[in-house]
């Protein structure tokens, strides 16, 4: 069992997302360590991209801030290497395919393995294109995380069968961003997955309140929260660690009583 799958064992996982290098690389480093201490079970780090097509405004702006602050793929690798001396929380990169492709696919994955990245999520690489990376991921023991969306329907079985680490279940149509209403329909998707495999399913997109986290954790194995945290980072800048930790603890508490 991979370190990522293991992180879901006996608990509902809380998975925060932050954009790497927003507002600067030192703050990202502090945030990762502090969030791990505050109970984050896995942490997702976005590699900033000029054109993040799957993101809403909040994360788009974080990408822009990070790039303007000079964040690059190499800067992130170095940071992960430093973080690894202080925590062994499973770490994932969320990246569009182009930064991986231009870095050199093999270079990228070997650097991931070297620095201690456990998995990658590539939102613009659907099942049909995953042979770009799946063999390399296997060779370097990096989990390639598959995504399911409300539109996946007859694709669910196809995708679930080959999934590794966990399955990222997208709660709603559209791009990332806080939503006041999240349909419970994603529960049906997860039911279908469970008939095929026992790989953990985490729900992301739109989740911001402890109440939402609680009710969606009931349907799944974990909760992913991005925009709500990135908003705090946008608001507090370099002083964001404390408010983010407070928030992570409240979300972790909300889902913790499920065992």
């Amino acid at each position: 069992m991979s370190k990522i799958t293991e992180a879901f064992k006996g608990k509902k996982a809380f998975i925060p997302f932050i954009t790497g290098g927003d507002p600067d690389i030192d703050t990202t480093e502090k945030l990762i360590i502090a969030m791990a201490q505050a109970g984050a079970d896995l942490i997702e780090i976005g590699i900033p991209f000029s054109d993040p097509v799957a993101e809403g405004t909040v994360i788009q702006e974080a990408n822009q801030r990070a790039l303007e602050a000079g964040c690059t793929t190499d800067v992130l690798f170095d940071m992960v290497q430093r973080v690894r001396l202080k925590t062994d929380v499973p770490l994932l990169f969320m990246t569009y395919l182009n930064p991986v492709y231009t870095y050199g696919k093999e270079n990228f994955l070997s650097r991931c393995a070297e620095c201690g990245i456990d998995g990658i999520i590539v939102p613009d690489m659907p099942f049909e294109e995953k042979d770009e990376l799946d063999t390399l991921c296997m060779n370097y023991k990096i989990d390639l995380i598959s995504m399911l969306a409300p539109t996946s329907e007859e694709r669910i079985a196809l995708i679930a069968k080959e999934a590794t680490g966990f399955i990222y279940c997208v709660s709603s149509l559209g791009v990332t961003g806080v939503r006041s209403n999240i349909s419970a329909e994603i529960g049906h998707t997860i039911d279908k997955v469970r008939k095929i495999t026992d790989i953990p399913c985490a729900i992301g997109f739109g989740i911001s309140t402890p109440q939402q986290a609680k009710s969606l954790a009931e349907l799944s194995d974990g909760i992913i929260v991005g925009s709500a945290i990135v908003k705090l980072i946008a608001k507090y800048g370099r002083d964001c660690v404390e408010p983010v930790i407070e928030y992570v603890e409240s979300m972790k508490n909300a889902i913790e009583h499920f065992k």
């Binding site: 097509v53 099942f127 995504m147 969306a149 539109t151 559209g174």
Partner: peptide, 22 residues
């Protein structure tokens, strides 16, 4: 040969959400 390829180029590099639509 995969669908929608012109030699090495083309493909369907889009989020899962859009796959059904295309």
């Amino acid at each position: 040969m995969k669908k929608g390829r012109f030699g090495n180029y083309g493909g369907q590099y889009i989020p899962e959400t859009l796959m059904k639509a295309v």
